[in-house]
Design a protein around this nucleic acid. Structure first.
Lengths: 156, 156
DNA sequence: TTCAAACTGTTCAAAAGTGAACTGTTTAAA
DNA sequence: TTTAAACAGTTCACTTTTGAACAGTTTGAA
């Protein structure tokens, strides 16, 4: 049986555990982004859009939680760099349809293969994990993020 | 057997998995911090120091990866708020010895018990995890963070 | 000793991020 | 229709974060 104070200890421990990985991810994402002339929000936007090739700015905002002014500026920069296409949605002219350009795709691909980049680093870090550990990890993360996302919606 | 392209897929998937949790943690840490009149770096510093009660500013920097100008300002604010003690180390007058004040400890404790705070949220999120899943999760994270930390040192 | 290099932290100008007010669009109630 | 409220995105002034130059301290080679 797990009492209240035990639960607080556990949640603190798990948070610290995530934080210790998180700070490293952020550090390397930052490094990778800056080396390629992007800000962290810009990198985040690209990584989000590449999954579906085409999304509205609104959807990107919902997925990333970036404040809309930050998002607007990030997108603007990416468009100016020629990495994103942006055009009003005909069905609703308030919304912006975003899609990654060929240049954008090539850019991301190059970034990911980069030596010393975050992906390369993570591949090495994962090496000691067994297949089972990897699968379990993804599953546990999904359980947590599902709950967190559901809560996130509320405070908006 | 896992080939190179499979490895890239996996590392991308795991990174995304962490990111989806991370963005929620950051969001709530931000919220919790702001509600209590702190910046995120300040909250980070407090959470780091509470573990050992007493650390040098240098050590805090090594643990958090905060740029030293950010760290300096964060600490300065915390000292001004009366949450941290700061004094030169007699054994090396370049270094600053930091310790949490009673007020600081009480402050953190209050924050952690706060309803709707990040700890409260995480406790609920963890509910569906079995003990085994929890243990495995911590273990896998430890494997990953151990490697990441060892690499982090290099680019400094 | 002396003094140059390494170090720890601070300062400050510049860069990045963000809240709030705004523009233009859509919706739907009157 | 008309029009007020809701909505998506932009702008801009303000805040926060950060790199680079700096001040003071320590180290160790000469």
């Amino acid at each position: 049986m797990v009492n209240e104070s035990e639960k607080l200890i556990r949640s603190t421990q798990l948070l610290r555990s995530f934080w210790s990985i998180q700070k490293n991810i952020v550090r390397f994402v930052q490094k990778t982004a800056v080396e390629n002339g992007l800000s962290v929000p810009q990198y985040t936007v690209l990584m989000t859009i590449i999954l579906q090739k085409e999304m509205t700015q609104k959807q990107v905002g919902e997925q990333t939680f970036l404040p809309k002014s930050t998002l607007s500026q990030a997108v603007d920069g990416l468009v100016r760099l020629g990495l994103l296409n942006r055009q009003q949605l005909e069905s609703n002219r308030r919304e912006m349809q975003l899609s990654i350009t060929e240049k954008g795709e090539a850019f991301l691909k190059k970034m990911h293969l980069q030596d010393g980049g975050i992906h390369h680093l993570f591949q090495s870090a994962m090496e000691p994990l067994t297949d089972k550990q990897y699968e379990d990890l993804l599953e546990s993360h999904l359980i947590l993020s599902t709950y967190l996302e559901s809560q996130a919606r509320e405070g908006m």
